[in-house]
Design a protein around this nucleic acid. Structure first.
Lengths: 347, 347
DNA sequence: CTAGTTAATTGGAACGTTCCAAATTTGTCA
DNA sequence: TGACAAATTTGGAACGTTCCAATTAACTAG
C-alpha cells in the first residue's frame, strides 16, 4: 500500500513546524508550546504515524527492550514466571524478547547473541542446565545488567533472585515428620543442578534433626516433570522397604506422583503423603489439593523484572542477590484432614 | 567498561580495509576475497564486535523480528503453542517478541502498537476475547503479514490457522455414543467465542445425527480452566437428570472435571466418561489418561510460524486460511478398557 | 523604546549500518 | 605488451531519529 513509511519529517511538513519540534512533542518535552503540541499530535494521529524506535535508539543508546530467556516454557512454573515478568515489563513501557531454550545451552547462546545484536537494555535469565559462567562472560563485560532467576550460577558477578530452596524442603520434611512419617522420600529432579542440591540439603538436614536416617536410599531422581513423577513411583514400589511419604522436587513431579499412586491403586493423601514445591496455579484446585512449598512464581517473575529495571535505570549498579522466602502451604495431599478445605488461607 | 561500542569502522581500521568491505563480510557476500574475509572475521572475533541490527534495519527495511501475541500463557495449550513457534522462528534466524495479553484487549492494543514501533516483520496473534477486526485495521493496512491462530476473527483479511473444532467435537460425541452414552454434556468455555461456537455446533450435530435430543440443557459454561471444570461438575451434580459423560471445551476443563468427580467420590472413566480437547502434553500421562481430541499445539505453533515466515519472505502474499485436521485419541478417561494402555498409539 | 530574559523553535551533525556507482586491482588472451 | 573483462574494494549518501548550539519570538522591567 504505502510506498514509503511516514516519518517525522512528513509530520513536520504537514503541521508547519520543524522536525525537531515534532521530536520534542514525541518525547513529551515541556519545552513545546501547548498549541503547537496539540496541532502536531493531531497530525500524527491523522497520518497514522508510527514511531521508529530503531532509529531512535541508534541515536540515543537506550533501547526499551529487555530479554527474557527461560529454560522450559512448557513447565507451568516457568510459564507463570514469564507471565509475571511480562506484566511489569509491559507496564514499564518496555517490550520483551522472550525465548525458550528447552535446556539447550547452544540455543541459549544463540538467542542471547541475537538479543544483544538487537540491543537489549537488560536480560533476565533462567539458565539452561549445564550453563557455564564463561557463557555469560562477554554479555556481562559489556555492562548490560543481567538478573539470574530460579537457578544460580555460583561465581558469576551478576544479580540473582532465588527462592529459599533449603528452607522450603526443610519445612516440608518437618511437616511430614510432624504427621508421624518416618520413611520420607525425596522424589524427582536431576542431581546436577544447584536447585536440586539445595533442596536435597534441606531434606537431609531436616531428617537429621529429626533423628532419622538420611542416606541416599530414598532419593529418587527423574525428569522434573509429570511423567518423571509417574516413573518414580513405579521405581519406588519395587522397594522392599517403601517410604510412606515424599517431598517432591517440584509440583509437576508431585502431580505425577499422585497419578502414579492412583495407577497403583493408592490414594495420595491417604495411603501416601505427597508434598510439592512451587505452588503452581493448579496446586490449589487439584484433587487432592496439593500441599506444597509456595514460591509464587508469578510474584517471583515480577520481582525479577523489577530488579532488572532498577539496575537498568541506575547506571553503575552493584549486583544484588535476593533470596525469596518461601512458606509451606498445607492442603490435602500430605495426608491430614481430607475435606478440611478451610485449612487453605488464600481463598 | 567500554566507553563506546566497537563499530564496523573500528573493525575496518584494524583490518586495514574499508567499512564497506566489513559490511560485505558481515553479510556473507560472495564478492569478497577469501583472504580478506578471513582477516576481517578474525578481527571481528578479536575485538568482540557485536552487530547492531537497529542500525542495519534502519537502512534496509527488513527487521528480523516477529511478534507473537497470545491470550493466556498460563494455559499450557498456549505455552506449548508458543514453544512450537519459538522453535521455527529461532531456527529461521529471527527473534521474537512474545507477549501475553491475559485476555485484555487493552493490553493487546498496547503490545501490538509497541511491537510495530520496534519494527516487526510479521505478527502471529491469538486474539484476546472481544477483539474487534477494527483493532487490527491499522496493522493490516500497513502491509505487515499477520497470522491469526487458534481463534478466528471472521471478516479480517489475514491468514489464519485454525483447528477443525467442529470435526473434533463431532468425533468425540460419536465416540461416547458408540460407548452407549445417551446423556452427554458439553462442559466449559465461554459462549461468546468463535471456538466455543464451533465446538458446540459439532456437539449438537453429532447428537442430532445420533437421534438424541440436542437442547441446551446439557451445556455448562465456565472459565476454560481447571478451576472452571471443578465448578462445572458441582453444578452438574445438582441436576435431577444427570449426564453420564461429557465432552469438555479443552483439556484444562477436562482435568478439572476429573478432579471434581473425584471430589464427589466418582471415578472418571468408570462412573463418568470424560473427553477433552487439545491433547496437551500431560493428557497422556494423567491418571486416568485423557481421551481427547488431539490438536498438537506444538505442531500448530510450528505451522503458524512457518506460514508467517512464508508470507514475510514472499511480498504481496495473499491471505491464506489453513484448517488443521484433528483426530480423537482414545485413552482411558472416556470409559472403556481401563488398563488397556496399548490403545495409545504414539508411545 | 531598548536591553535583557525567558520561552519556543530550528537547522545540521551524529548514531551504525547498507547500498550504489565508481574506482582499483587482478587476470586473460591475443 | 595492450586491451578488455572479471574480481574486488571503496567512498559517500541514505535510513529516521535525537541532540546540541544557535536563532527567533515573546515578555519584562527600567
Amino acid at each position: 500500500m504505502k510506498r514509503t513509511r511516514t516519518t517525522v519529517i512528513d509530520i513536520a511538513r504537514a503541521a508547519g513546524v520543524s522536525k525537531s519540534t515534532v521530536s520534542l512533542v514525541l518525547q513529551g518535552s515541556p519545552l513545546v508550546n501547548e498549541a503547537t503540541r496539540a496541532k502536531v499530535s493531531a497530525v500524527i494521529r491523522e497520518l497514522g504515524y508510527v514511531y521508529n524506535r530503531s532509529a531512535a535508539n541508534l541515536r540515543q543508546a537506550k533501547s526499551g527492550i529487555v530479554g527474557i530467556v527461560v529454560n522450559d516454557l512448557t513447565n507451568s512454573f516457568f510459564a507463570e514466571l514469564a507471565v509475571g515478568m511480562d506484566m511489569v515489563v509491559q507496564s514499564a513501557g518496555y517490550v520483551q524478547f522472550l525465548a525458550n531454550t528447552g535446556e539447550s545451552v547452544d540455543r541459549q547462546r544463540e538467542v542471547i547473541a541475537s538479543m544483544r545484536e538487537h540491543g537489549i537494555a537488560g536480560l533476565i535469565l533462567s539458565p539452561a542446565r549445564g550453563t557455564q559462567i564463561s557463557d555469560l562472560k562477554p554479555l556481562i563485560d559489556s555492562g548490560i545488567p543481567v538478573v539470574l532467576v530460579v537457578r544460580n550460577l555460583p561465581g558469576a558477578k551478576v544479580s540473582s533472585l532465588l527462592s529459599d530452596n533449603y528452607a522450603g524442603t526443610l519445612q516440608a520434611v518437618e511437616h511430614l515428620v510432624g504427621l508421624g512419617h518416618r520413611r520420607i522420600a525425596f522424589m524427582g529432579g536431576y542431581a546436577d543442578t544447584a536447585v536440586f542440591e539445595e533442596r536435597v540439603r534441606g531434606y537431609r538436614d531436616a531428617l537429621m534433626r529429626a533423628g532419622l536416617p538420611s542416606g541416599d536410599d530414598f532419593i529418587f531422581n527423574s525428569a522434573p516433570s509429570r511423567a518423571g513423577g509417574v516413573a518414580v513411583v513405579e521405581k519406588m514400589l519395587l522397594r522392599a522397604e517403601r517410604p510412606t511419604a515424599a517431598v517432591c522436587f517440584n509440583d509437576a513431579v508431585a502431580f505425577g506422583v499422585c497419578d502414579g499412586l492412583r495407577a497403583a491403586r493408592m490414594e495420595p493423601g491417604v495411603d501416601f503423603g505427597v508434598v510439592g514445591f512451587d505452588d503452581v496455579i493448579e496446586a490449589k484446585t487439584a484433587v487432592p489439593a496439593l500441599t506444597t512449598v509456595s514460591v509464587d512464581p508469578q510474584g517471583m517473575g515480577q520481582r525479577a523484572a523489577q530488579l532488572l529495571l532498577k539496575q537498568i535505570n541506575s547506571e553503575r549498579a552493584e549486583p544484588e542477590a535476593q533470596l525469596l522466602s518461601v512458606r509451606l502451604v498445607v492442603r490435602e495431599s500430605s495426608g491430614i484432614g481430607k475435606n478440611v478445605r478451610n485449612r487453605e488461607e488464600h481463598a
